[in-house]
Amino acid sequence: MAERNTISVKRAHGAVVEGEALISSEGFSPRYDLDRWSGEISRPGHALEGVNIRDKVLFFPSAKGGIAAGWAFYDIKAKGFAPKALVFGVTNPVMVQGAIFAGIAITEGWDIEPSEVVNNGDWVRVDPQNRTITVVRSSLVSAANQQTTQAE
């Protein structure tokens, strides 16, 4: 059976964007978790602590509280380290309002766990109009091919 390379999402807004996938096992708030002067996830103990979100397609299972996210996305976009897209399992209105205001693609809901389709470092395309996220280029292509060869 051909491996799936597409995730369908429930809701989406924004332009078609591509970028490197970064999957978090933990939820996200640009206020609680992010250093907004560097773009690094700064909260000690966060699953992505120390990782920079610039130009990434970010996968988060959930959004965390915090109204200030609305201005924060606009701020980090102006500072040049906004992510390309925010892909949430479950989001909240603040994330949506903030992302739309800042012009960052955002989606909610997925029909399969992203980690079953996407690996960190994969190049993915987010298509809000068609509500799909597609792996364009896998970071594990060579490794996967080797495994397939061995299996055969």
Binding site: I67, A68, G70, W71, N92, P93, Q97, F101
Partner: peptide
């Protein structure tokens, strides 16, 4: 009310 972030409010 919903959470209305700054730009939305």
């Amino acid at each position: 009310s919903n959470f209305e972030a700054g730009p939305a409010a």
